[in-house]
Amino acid sequence: MILNEEYRLKVGLAEMLKGGVIMDVVTPEQAIIAERAGACAVMALERVPSDIRRDGGVARMSHISLIRGIMEAVSIPVMAKARIGHFVEARVLEALAVDYIDESEVLTPADEENHIDKRDFKVPFVCGARNLGEALRRIGEGAAMIRTKGEAGSGNIVEAVRHMRTIVKEMRQLTVLGPEELMAEAKKHQAPFELIEWVAKNGRLPVPNFSAGGIATPADAALVMQLGAEAVFVGSGIFKSENPEVFAKAVVKATTYYKDPVKVMEACEEIGESKAMVGLEISKIAEGELMQTRGW
Protein backbone atom coordinates (compact mmCIF):
# COMPACT_ATOMS: atom_id res chain seq x y z
CA MET A 1 0.00 0.00 0.00
CA ILE A 2 1.43 3.34 -1.06
CA LEU A 3 -0.63 5.47 1.31
CA ASN A 4 0.73 3.96 4.53
CA GLU A 5 1.19 5.55 7.97
CA GLU A 6 4.73 6.76 7.44
CA TYR A 7 3.68 8.49 4.25
CA ARG A 8 0.86 10.21 6.13
CA LEU A 9 3.42 12.07 8.25
CA LYS A 10 5.24 13.39 5.19
CA VAL A 11 1.96 14.57 3.71
CA GLY A 12 1.19 16.29 7.04
CA LEU A 13 4.43 18.22 6.65
CA ALA A 14 3.19 19.60 3.35
CA GLU A 15 -0.19 20.54 4.88
CA MET A 16 1.55 23.22 6.96
CA LEU A 17 2.52 25.16 3.82
CA LYS A 18 -1.02 25.46 2.49
CA GLY A 19 -2.37 28.88 1.69
CA GLY A 20 1.19 30.18 1.61
CA VAL A 21 3.87 31.36 -0.80
CA ILE A 22 7.19 29.57 -1.25
CA MET A 23 9.79 31.91 -2.72
CA ASP A 24 13.01 31.18 -4.63
CA VAL A 25 15.99 32.90 -3.01
CA VAL A 26 19.67 32.92 -3.97
CA THR A 27 21.21 34.65 -0.93
CA PRO A 28 20.57 34.80 2.84
CA GLU A 29 19.61 38.48 2.37
CA GLN A 30 16.88 37.52 -0.09
CA ALA A 31 15.70 34.79 2.29
CA ILE A 32 15.28 37.39 5.03
CA ILE A 33 13.31 39.66 2.68
CA ALA A 34 11.08 36.70 1.79
CA GLU A 35 10.52 35.75 5.44
CA ARG A 36 9.71 39.36 6.37
CA ALA A 37 7.24 39.57 3.53
CA GLY A 38 5.39 36.53 4.90
CA ALA A 39 6.72 33.62 2.80
CA CYS A 40 5.83 30.27 4.43
CA ALA A 41 9.05 28.68 3.10
CA VAL A 42 11.95 29.49 0.80
CA MET A 43 13.62 27.51 -1.98
CA ALA A 44 17.39 27.90 -1.71
CA LEU A 45 19.20 27.90 -5.06
CA GLU A 46 22.16 29.46 -6.84
CA ARG A 47 20.27 30.93 -9.76
CA VAL A 48 16.57 31.54 -10.24
CA PRO A 49 15.08 29.68 -13.24
CA SER A 50 15.17 32.70 -15.58
CA ASP A 51 18.93 32.99 -15.03
CA ILE A 52 19.40 29.23 -15.51
CA ARG A 53 17.53 29.61 -18.79
CA ARG A 54 19.70 32.56 -19.84
CA ASP A 55 23.02 30.97 -18.86
CA GLY A 56 22.42 27.56 -20.42
CA GLY A 57 24.74 24.64 -19.60
CA VAL A 58 24.08 21.97 -16.98
CA ALA A 59 22.17 23.14 -13.90
CA ARG A 60 22.95 21.13 -10.74
CA MET A 61 22.19 21.04 -7.03
CA SER A 62 23.30 24.29 -5.32
CA HIS A 63 26.46 24.61 -3.24
CA ILE A 64 26.07 23.33 0.31
CA SER A 65 27.53 26.52 1.80
CA LEU A 66 24.88 28.58 0.03
CA ILE A 67 21.99 26.39 1.23
CA ARG A 68 23.42 26.26 4.74
CA GLY A 69 23.76 30.05 4.85
CA ILE A 70 20.09 30.40 3.93
CA MET A 71 19.05 27.77 6.50
CA GLU A 72 20.87 29.75 9.17
CA ALA A 73 19.35 33.07 8.11
CA VAL A 74 15.64 32.22 8.51
CA SER A 75 13.33 30.29 10.84
CA ILE A 76 10.83 29.22 8.14
CA PRO A 77 11.34 25.89 6.30
CA VAL A 78 14.02 25.75 3.61
CA MET A 79 13.70 23.62 0.46
CA ALA A 80 16.40 22.78 -2.06
CA LYS A 81 16.43 21.21 -5.52
CA ALA A 82 17.96 17.94 -6.71
CA ARG A 83 18.19 16.88 -10.35
CA ILE A 84 15.57 14.41 -11.59
CA GLY A 85 16.85 10.90 -10.83
CA HIS A 86 19.92 12.13 -8.94
CA PHE A 87 19.37 10.24 -5.71
CA VAL A 88 22.83 11.11 -4.41
CA GLU A 89 22.14 14.85 -4.60
CA ALA A 90 18.94 14.06 -2.71
CA ARG A 91 20.82 12.09 -0.03
CA VAL A 92 23.25 15.00 0.33
CA LEU A 93 20.36 17.42 0.84
CA GLU A 94 18.81 15.03 3.36
CA ALA A 95 22.13 14.85 5.23
CA LEU A 96 22.16 18.64 5.26
CA ALA A 97 18.67 18.44 6.86
CA VAL A 98 16.82 20.68 4.41
CA ASP A 99 13.08 20.57 5.16
CA TYR A 100 11.87 19.54 1.69
CA ILE A 101 13.56 18.38 -1.52
CA ASP A 102 12.26 19.48 -4.92
CA GLU A 103 13.15 16.85 -7.55
CA SER A 104 13.02 19.52 -10.17
CA GLU A 105 12.83 19.88 -13.93
CA VAL A 106 14.45 23.30 -13.49
CA LEU A 107 17.77 21.48 -13.10
CA THR A 108 19.22 19.34 -15.87
CA PRO A 109 17.95 15.74 -15.44
CA ALA A 110 20.48 13.14 -14.32
CA ASP A 111 18.36 10.18 -15.48
CA GLU A 112 16.16 10.23 -18.55
CA GLU A 113 14.04 7.22 -17.53
CA ASN A 114 13.77 7.07 -13.77
CA HIS A 115 12.93 9.46 -10.98
CA ILE A 116 14.25 9.08 -7.44
CA ASP A 117 12.65 6.37 -5.27
CA LYS A 118 11.40 8.89 -2.72
CA ARG A 119 9.67 6.42 -0.37
CA ASP A 120 12.91 5.51 1.19
CA PHE A 121 13.80 9.04 2.37
CA LYS A 122 12.84 10.63 5.69
CA VAL A 123 12.69 14.11 4.17
CA PRO A 124 9.56 14.83 2.10
CA PHE A 125 9.73 15.52 -1.64
CA VAL A 126 7.83 17.83 -3.93
CA CYS A 127 7.68 17.04 -7.67
CA GLY A 128 6.29 18.80 -10.72
CA ALA A 129 3.47 17.48 -12.90
CA ARG A 130 1.64 18.55 -16.05
CA ASN A 131 -1.26 16.12 -15.79
CA LEU A 132 -2.86 13.62 -13.43
CA GLY A 133 -0.87 10.63 -14.66
CA GLU A 134 2.42 12.39 -14.03
CA ALA A 135 1.24 13.54 -10.58
CA LEU A 136 0.20 10.01 -9.59
CA ARG A 137 3.42 8.45 -10.87
CA ARG A 138 5.37 10.86 -8.67
CA ILE A 139 3.11 10.09 -5.69
CA GLY A 140 3.61 6.39 -6.40
CA GLU A 141 7.36 7.01 -6.08
CA GLY A 142 6.75 8.72 -2.73
CA ALA A 143 6.33 12.45 -3.44
CA ALA A 144 4.41 14.09 -0.56
CA MET A 145 3.50 17.24 -2.47
CA ILE A 146 2.74 17.94 -6.12
CA ARG A 147 3.13 21.24 -7.94
CA THR A 148 2.25 22.14 -11.48
CA LYS A 149 5.35 22.50 -13.61
CA GLY A 150 4.19 25.50 -15.56
CA GLU A 151 7.15 26.89 -17.48
CA ALA A 152 9.74 27.93 -14.91
CA GLY A 153 11.53 31.24 -15.46
CA SER A 154 9.11 32.32 -18.19
CA GLY A 155 7.11 34.84 -16.15
CA ASN A 156 4.17 33.54 -18.19
CA ILE A 157 1.27 31.97 -16.30
CA VAL A 158 -0.24 30.17 -19.28
CA GLU A 159 1.48 26.80 -18.73
CA ALA A 160 0.73 26.69 -14.98
CA VAL A 161 -2.92 27.37 -15.82
CA ARG A 162 -2.90 24.62 -18.45
CA HIS A 163 -1.38 22.12 -16.02
CA MET A 164 -3.65 22.99 -13.09
CA ARG A 165 -6.75 22.87 -15.27
CA THR A 166 -5.67 19.54 -16.72
CA ILE A 167 -5.05 17.93 -13.33
CA VAL A 168 -8.32 19.23 -11.86
CA LYS A 169 -10.34 18.21 -14.93
CA GLU A 170 -8.84 14.72 -15.04
CA MET A 171 -9.59 14.23 -11.34
CA ARG A 172 -13.16 15.41 -11.76
CA GLN A 173 -13.70 13.03 -14.67
CA LEU A 174 -12.60 10.05 -12.55
CA THR A 175 -15.21 10.79 -9.87
CA VAL A 176 -18.13 10.05 -12.19
CA LEU A 177 -16.85 6.67 -13.42
CA GLY A 178 -17.85 3.23 -12.19
CA PRO A 179 -15.35 0.88 -10.52
CA GLU A 180 -15.13 -1.33 -13.61
CA GLU A 181 -13.90 1.64 -15.65
CA LEU A 182 -10.95 2.52 -13.45
CA MET A 183 -8.41 0.00 -14.69
CA ALA A 184 -8.76 1.40 -18.20
CA GLU A 185 -8.18 4.86 -16.67
CA ALA A 186 -5.04 3.63 -14.91
CA LYS A 187 -3.85 2.37 -18.28
CA LYS A 188 -4.72 5.64 -20.02
CA HIS A 189 -3.06 7.85 -17.40
CA GLN A 190 -0.14 5.42 -16.94
CA ALA A 191 -0.68 5.70 -13.22
CA PRO A 192 -0.84 3.24 -10.29
CA PHE A 193 -4.31 1.66 -10.07
CA GLU A 194 -4.78 2.18 -6.33
CA LEU A 195 -4.07 5.89 -6.69
CA ILE A 196 -6.55 6.16 -9.56
CA GLU A 197 -9.09 4.48 -7.27
CA TRP A 198 -8.25 6.88 -4.43
CA VAL A 199 -8.72 9.95 -6.63
CA ALA A 200 -11.96 8.57 -8.09
CA LYS A 201 -13.32 8.18 -4.56
CA ASN A 202 -12.04 11.47 -3.09
CA GLY A 203 -11.95 13.85 -6.07
CA ARG A 204 -8.57 15.29 -5.08
CA LEU A 205 -4.92 14.24 -4.87
CA PRO A 206 -3.90 12.33 -1.73
CA VAL A 207 -1.22 15.02 -1.20
CA PRO A 208 -1.33 18.83 -1.30
CA ASN A 209 -1.54 20.22 -4.83
CA PHE A 210 0.47 23.41 -5.31
CA SER A 211 1.18 25.61 -8.31
CA ALA A 212 4.49 26.75 -9.79
CA GLY A 213 6.05 27.91 -13.02
CA GLY A 214 5.39 31.40 -14.36
CA ILE A 215 3.67 33.20 -11.46
CA ALA A 216 4.78 36.85 -11.75
CA THR A 217 2.05 39.05 -10.20
CA PRO A 218 -0.40 39.01 -7.25
CA ALA A 219 -3.23 38.38 -9.72
CA ASP A 220 -1.37 35.36 -11.16
CA ALA A 221 -1.11 33.90 -7.66
CA ALA A 222 -4.83 34.43 -6.97
CA LEU A 223 -5.68 32.93 -10.37
CA VAL A 224 -3.93 29.60 -9.76
CA MET A 225 -5.39 29.48 -6.23
CA GLN A 226 -8.87 29.88 -7.67
CA LEU A 227 -8.15 27.14 -10.18
CA GLY A 228 -7.46 24.72 -7.33
CA ALA A 229 -3.88 25.29 -6.14
CA GLU A 230 -3.45 25.03 -2.36
CA ALA A 231 -0.25 27.14 -2.21
CA VAL A 232 2.06 28.79 -4.73
CA PHE A 233 5.73 28.69 -5.58
CA VAL A 234 7.14 31.92 -6.98
CA GLY A 235 10.52 31.49 -8.60
CA SER A 236 11.91 34.32 -10.65
CA GLY A 237 8.75 36.41 -10.14
CA ILE A 238 9.83 38.02 -6.87
CA PHE A 239 13.53 38.76 -7.17
CA LYS A 240 13.46 39.48 -10.90
CA SER A 241 10.79 42.13 -10.37
CA GLU A 242 11.68 45.79 -9.99
CA ASN A 243 10.85 45.90 -6.28
CA PRO A 244 11.16 42.43 -4.69
CA GLU A 245 10.09 43.44 -1.19
CA VAL A 246 6.86 45.01 -2.36
CA PHE A 247 6.13 42.21 -4.83
CA ALA A 248 6.75 39.56 -2.17
CA LYS A 249 4.28 41.16 0.25
CA ALA A 250 1.66 41.72 -2.43
CA VAL A 251 1.86 38.12 -3.68
CA VAL A 252 1.46 36.81 -0.10
CA LYS A 253 -1.62 38.96 0.38
CA ALA A 254 -3.21 37.93 -2.91
CA THR A 255 -2.59 34.26 -2.10
CA THR A 256 -4.25 34.46 1.33
CA TYR A 257 -7.22 36.48 0.06
CA TYR A 258 -7.45 34.86 -3.38
CA LYS A 259 -11.24 34.64 -3.18
CA ASP A 260 -11.69 38.34 -2.33
CA PRO A 261 -11.35 40.64 -5.39
CA VAL A 262 -11.09 43.79 -3.24
CA LYS A 263 -8.11 42.39 -1.34
CA VAL A 264 -6.47 41.18 -4.56
CA MET A 265 -7.00 44.67 -5.99
CA GLU A 266 -5.31 46.14 -2.90
CA ALA A 267 -2.40 43.75 -3.43
CA CYS A 268 -2.12 44.85 -7.07
CA GLU A 269 -2.23 48.47 -5.94
CA GLU A 270 0.59 47.90 -3.43
CA ILE A 271 3.06 47.21 -6.22
CA GLY A 272 2.34 50.67 -7.61
CA GLU A 273 4.06 51.25 -10.92
CA SER A 274 6.97 48.92 -10.30
CA LYS A 275 7.46 46.40 -13.06
CA ALA A 276 6.97 42.65 -12.86
CA MET A 277 9.68 40.42 -14.30
CA VAL A 278 9.91 40.41 -18.07
CA GLY A 279 7.84 37.53 -19.44
CA LEU A 280 8.52 35.17 -22.34
CA GLU A 281 6.10 34.04 -25.00
CA ILE A 282 6.11 30.23 -24.67
CA SER A 283 6.02 29.67 -28.44
CA LYS A 284 9.25 31.70 -28.74
CA ILE A 285 11.11 29.28 -26.48
CA ALA A 286 12.93 26.59 -28.50
CA GLU A 287 11.45 23.17 -27.81
CA GLY A 288 14.74 21.84 -26.47
CA GLU A 289 14.81 24.66 -23.93
CA LEU A 290 11.42 23.95 -22.41
CA MET A 291 11.80 22.78 -18.81
CA GLN A 292 8.32 21.30 -18.44
CA THR A 293 9.02 18.40 -20.82
CA ARG A 294 11.71 17.08 -18.47
CA GLY A 295 10.35 14.29 -16.26
CA TRP A 296 8.84 10.95 -17.22
Binding site: M16, K18, G20, G38, A39, P77, K253
Partner: peptide, 11 residues
Protein backbone atom coordinates in the same frame (compact mmCIF):
# COMPACT_ATOMS: atom_id res chain seq x y z
CA UNK B 1 -4.02 26.20 12.93
CA UNK B 2 -0.58 24.79 12.28
CA UNK B 3 1.57 26.47 9.68
CA UNK B 4 4.22 29.16 9.91
CA UNK B 5 3.72 31.43 12.92
CA UNK B 6 5.89 34.19 11.41
CA UNK B 7 3.73 34.26 8.27
CA UNK B 8 0.49 34.35 10.28
CA UNK B 9 1.81 37.04 12.61
CA UNK B 10 2.73 39.30 9.69
CA UNK B 11 -0.64 38.86 8.05
Amino acid sequence: PGGESTTMLKL
